[in-house]
Simulated scan of single mutants.
Amino acid sequence: MEWIELFKAMILGFVEGMTEFAPVSSTGHMIIVDDMWLKTEEFLGSGSANTFKIVIQLGSILAVVFVMWKRMLSLVGLYKIEGQTAGRFNLGHVIMGIIPAGVFGVLFEDMIDEYLFGIETVIIGLIIGAFFMIIADKFGPKKPAITSLDEISYTKALKIGLIQCLSLWPGFSRSGSTISGGVLLGLDHKTAADFTFIMAVPIMAGASGLSLLKHWDEINADHFWFYVVGFVSAFVFALISIKFFLKLISKVKLTPFAIYRILLALVLIVILAF
C-alpha cells in the first residue's frame, strides 16, 4: 500500500476523531471528504470503503473508554463513583438506550449501506438534524431536572434510545439526535452528552463487527495498514476532542453547531449544482 493511501486513512481518522463527539455527524463528514476528495472506494471497493468508515469509529469509541474508564467500570459494579445515589446509572440504562437503534440498525443495514451513503442524503440529514437541535435548545427546559447520569430513569433512557434511531440516517448525527432528545426530555446538555458517549461504545462495537462480517471477503491483507492508520488516527484525535467538547457543549449549547451544519449543507448544495 502506497504512502498516499495511508495518508488518506490518517485524514479520514482525523475527520472521524474530531467530529465523532460534536453534533455534526462524523459519518456525514467522512462521506463528504471521501466522496469529494479522497476517493478510497477506488482502491478499497464500495463495501470495504463503507466498512472502513464504520470500523475506524472504534478508535473514537476506545478514546471514550480511555477517558471515562471509571464510569465504564461502575456500570458493571467494578468501581464505586463517589456520591452515586441508590438508583445509580448502570448497565440497564445503557441496554435500554441501545436496544431501539440496535434493532433498527440490523433490520435496515442493507438499505442504509446501499442507498444512504451519499452526499445528497448527508445534506438532508445535516439540515433536518440542525433544525431538531435548534428546537431542542429553544423548547428544552430552562432549568433541567436531570443534571447527572445517576438521575436518568430507565424510561428516559429508552426514550432517548428511540430518538437515537434518527441517527441511522447519515448526516443526522448520533450525538446530535441523542443530546437534542435528552435536552427535550429534561437532561442538561452535559449529562445528555455523557449518556450519548457511553451508549456509543456498544452500538459502534456492534455496528463495526456486523459490517466487518458482512464485507469480510472484500477486505484483503493489503488493506490492513489502511485500517490500522485510520483507527489510530481516530483514537488520537478523539482524545483531543472529547474533553474540549464536553466543556464547550455546556457553554454554547447546540445552536452554533446547528448553524454550522446548515452552512455546510448550503456549501455542498452549491458545489453539487456547479
Rank of each mutant, 00 (worst) to 15 (best):
E114M: 14
I240K: 00
T147Q: 13
R71Q: 08
F132K: 01
I32K: 04
A9I: 01
F139V: 00
L213D: 02
I219Q: 03
L168I: 12
G45A: 14
A234D: 07
E41S: 11
F231P: 08
I259L: 12
L126E: 01
P141H: 05
F231Y: 05
W225S: 11
I160T: 01
G161R: 08
L73H: 05
G118W: 02
F257G: 05
T85R: 13
F237N: 06
P100C: 09
V15L: 07
L116V: 10
F237E: 08
T40R: 08
V33L: 06
D137E: 06
I146T: 15
G209N: 03
G206A: 15
G102L: 02
T155C: 12
T191V: 10
L6V: 01
F195Y: 11
Y115Q: 13
M1Y: 03
S211E: 09
V106Y: 14
F108R: 03
L126K: 03
I160L: 06
I112Y: 01
L116I: 09
I219C: 01
G209H: 06
G97D: 04
L185E: 15
D222W: 00
K53M: 11
F66Y: 14
I128W: 10
W216K: 02
F21H: 09
M111L: 14
G92W: 13
Y227T: 07
T19P: 01
K39L: 02
L73G: 11
V24A: 05
I242W: 02
W37C: 14
S148H: 03
A22L: 15
I11C: 12
L58D: 04
S175L: 09
R174K: 15
M204S: 08
S74W: 07
T196A: 14
M72Y: 07
L268M: 10
S148I: 01
D217H: 14
Q57D: 11
I56V: 11
L75S: 11
N220L: 13
A207I: 09
Q164T: 04
V228Q: 08
I262V: 15
Y154P: 03
I4V: 12
H189C: 00
L184Y: 02
E114Y: 04
H93A: 14
E16M: 05
A221Q: 15
I269Q: 04
L254N: 07
I134R: 07
L6M: 11
I249V: 15
F231G: 00
M36V: 09
L266P: 03
H215L: 00
